[in-house]
Design a protein around this nucleic acid. Structure first.
Lengths: 200, 200
DNA sequence: TTTTATTGATTGAACGTTCAATAAAAGAAT
DNA sequence: ATTCTTTTATTGAACGTTCAATCAATAAAA
């Protein structure tokens, strides 16, 4: 059934199938055959479009990071002249959207996270994303407190976000996004209240 | 060089070698041969003492959890009639000791964490450990605040601990245990100060 | 007829496990 | 003490399996 212009379609199908396979059996057992079966195509097509399994995995991680960045950016749109608290809240809520914080994406994200410890290319992607979150947080905190305090607050909030989300990925019931958001926002307010000279 | 009573020695050697191998190349590439080479023995010995590779991995995770539990318990010893703040501080510091929060143990722990998403036996171990941390935290918070608030505080602090520790495992420089401890203790004080009727 | 898309059998490498062989140590017998 | 026997510890080659990658064959579309 060859039709022209299949490339973008197949790429999306295979990326989605990769997440589905990882969600189902984990990264270690997500073979090219299983991924291909999920997408309804043959195994050979993966090497054709992604150069090999590694290329597909990298593309999948890149997709997840892009979606996450978009979710945060969308919530910050139109907040240009708002206070830091509004921006920080948007960052938190964007991170707990994470395209779909429940289901395949969350498990795939955690699997890549662990895998990035020993795969330089994945580590690079993960680090770029990480620094973006940190410097975004830091820049907003910086508006109401000294740099050193801002750095500390950013590190604390970033760790809390990751921790909440990580625990959500592991509990059988999935992440309770509502209560996670509440915990992060409450901690945010306490981090801000220490320097409550100019609230916004 | 067979000597009697090698079993406990070999088991310890192989568990240590497993962590070293996972630290070096990751769980996915930690083959029985590589682990055996680290321990200076042949590959066949793993099946002999642990029944197979899975048995060794499970024993390794169990060891890490035991060490973690011991580190916390040791710091809480003799705190029987102290206030909740002392117990919570001991729990935090025990978790940032983690036998050796830096090096092989940290990476191995994270690798197992991710792997437990799809291996029921590892998931069981991880869950037992998780519930222990949570209920310990909850019991102490419960002494100075209503149950619902205590549960919220316990979940927040547990997530922060995991998040700090997780980020430490991923940064190339390793976890800055000192600054992580400071962040967790500061958050602890803020969680307690909301209900600062009876400080101890 | 040429181009684009796809298949699936094949290949070669890597893995975990098994097991017969081996050898040191411990115990028994001279 | 020395030799023989049994037990315990260990090896490493062989086996069967699984996987990712390849590529000649195929077929729809242009």
């Amino acid at each position: 059934m060859p039709k022209v212009g299949m490339e973008p379609i197949r790429r999306q199908q295979l990326i989605a199938a990769t997440m589905a396979a990882i969600d189902e059996v984990g990264l270690a057992d997500a073979t090219v055959m299983r991924i291909a079966r999920h997408a309804g195509v043959s195994a050979g097509i993966i090497s054709h479009y992604f150069g090999g399994k590694d290329g597909l995995l990298e593309a999948t991680m890149r997709q997840i990071l892009t979606d996450l960045g978009d979710a945060v950016a969308a919530r910050r749109r139109g907040l240009a002249n708002h206070g830091p608290r509004a921006h920080l809240q948007a960052i938190i809520e964007g991170n707990f959207d994470r395209s779909q914080v429940t289901g395949p994406v969350a498990k795939t994200w955690l699997a890549f996270w662990a895998s990035s410890m020993h795969k330089p290319e994945l580590a690079r992607l993960q680090q770029v994303n990480d620094r973006r979150l940190y410097s975004n947080l830091c820049a907003q905190f910086r508006r109401v407190m000294p740099q050193q305090d801002a750095r500390y607050a950013a590190r604390t909030l970033a760790a809390l976000i990751d921790g909440l989300w990580l625990r959500g990925a592991l509990t059988p019931e999935g992440l309770d996004a509502e209560s996670a958001r509440r915990a992060a926002l409450a901690t945010l307010d306490q981090l801000l209240s220490t320097h409550s000279t100019s609230a916004a």
